[in-house]
Amino acid sequence: MSTNTGTVEKYRNNFLKEVEANVEEGDWVKMCMQCGVCAGSCPLGKHWAHPPQEIFMMIRAGKREEVLTSDSMWMCTSCYNCIVRCPRELPITHIMHGLANYAKRLGLAPKAQPTAWFSQVFWDNMMKKGRVNELKLGLSLYFKDGIVSGIKESIKHQKLGMNMMKAKRMSPMELFGGHGVKSAGDLQKIIKKAQEIENARLESYGK
């Protein structure tokens, strides 16, 4: 049985309970009063297939598949407009991050969603040495669809890169090692442990 089917079984299709238990700040979802201020406040609002208040209602209506496979949550820019304007003070930004993370964990996030892809690349980049390697991060973005399109993209953005190097705000040295914490191994051990604790908690719920 896959993780996904197992989870569906466990919650007997009560998706709201599943979200409350497993999604960051998910216990706030039921507090939404459907005013729509979040939708009107979102800088990328017009690009959401389902704005936050709709996502909240869909969760309550048990539309598990539609919610978790949606690319809506991945439109969040983390501007926090919705949080400060929500009359009921729902931590909407965090719930969107939480839903996105949960969907990805279950393998349900839409394939080739650019922000889903980028957020993972950012995390992996940062975890390698404990600090972001901006040059490698930029290159992985250009080369995400392979070598040929990578070279094309790099040429397209060549001027930007040259500008950054001239201003000493990008360093070719970052390709060879670059910045990092001294004890990257320790940091990785810490984060691995945190992941284990979190995974164990998610797996144990409802058992």
Partner: peptide, 8 residues
């Protein structure tokens, strides 16, 4: 942006 890779 790390939320795609890292849980809370």
């Amino acid at each position: 942006i790390g939320y795609g890779g890292g849980g809370v």
